[in-house]
Amino acid sequence: MQISFPQEPAEYCGRDLVLAFPAIVDDERVQCAITAEALEDHFGAASLREQDLVSAFDRHRREIERAARELLGEIGKKPVLLHSGYFRFYKRSA
């Protein structure tokens, strides 16, 4: 399975309090997202404000994409939502 992440800006969804970002899985676009809570709890977002969430995402994008890649590898071409609880057990690497 080929997985890549286009370097497009993450999109803020205030209704769901997530940042969405795309993945390309075997030439098909798949929606990925990370919750604001995960960005606060694990990636240092100062608040739920869009600017703070985007800043935390940008600083930790590679690690967030690595986690999304792992989930996509497990579930295939399905949308991924990264919750705070996932990162409690996800093995973070430098």
Rank of each mutant, 00 (worst) to 15 (best):
R61Q: 15
E37R: 08
C13I: 12
K91Y: 09
P79T: 06
Y90D: 08
A94H: 12
R61N: 10
P79A: 04
I34H: 02
A10C: 04
Y86V: 13
L19M: 09
A23D: 11
V54G: 07
E70Q: 12
F87M: 05
R69E: 15
D26F: 04
R15P: 03
M1W: 03
V54T: 08
D52K: 00
L71F: 03
Q7T: 11
I64P: 08
K91W: 10
S84L: 09
R69S: 11
Y12Q: 07
A67K: 01
Q51D: 13
R15W: 08
K78R: 15
S84N: 05
E37C: 06
E8G: 05
V25N: 00
Y12M: 00
L17H: 11
G85R: 12
E37P: 00
D26Q: 13
G14N: 09
L17Q: 13
L81G: 03
R59E: 15
Y12S: 00
L48D: 07
T35R: 03
S55V: 10
D26I: 09
D16R: 08
A94Q: 14
E65T: 01
I34V: 14
D52P: 05
D26Y: 06
A23S: 12
S4Q: 13
I24C: 10
A94N: 12
A20I: 08
L39E: 05
S55Y: 13
P6M: 09
S47E: 05
F5Q: 05
L82H: 00
F5I: 08
A68F: 00
A10P: 15
E63S: 10
L19Q: 04
I3V: 15
F57Y: 14
L82G: 06
A20P: 08
I34P: 03
D27M: 10
K91R: 13
R29Q: 14
R59K: 14
E11T: 12
C13L: 14
H42T: 09
S55C: 04
F57V: 02
F43A: 03
K78T: 12
A20E: 14
E11F: 00
I64W: 05
K91E: 15
A33H: 02
L17M: 15
V54M: 03
V18Y: 06
D27N: 14
L19H: 08
R88C: 06
L19S: 07
K91S: 13
R59A: 14
E74F: 07
A10N: 00
E28V: 12
E8W: 11
R15H: 14
S84P: 09
D26A: 10
S84H: 08
F89D: 11
P22H: 00
G44N: 06
P9C: 07
I3L: 02
H60K: 03
I34G: 01
I24S: 06
A10T: 01
Q31L: 14
L19Y: 05
V80D: 08
L53V: 04
R29E: 13
L48E: 06
A68S: 11
K77E: 15
V80E: 06
S4E: 13
L71K: 11
D16Q: 12
E70C: 05
E70S: 03
E63I: 12
R61L: 05
D52T: 04
A45Y: 06
L48Q: 10
V54Q: 03
E8H: 07
G76T: 00
R29M: 10
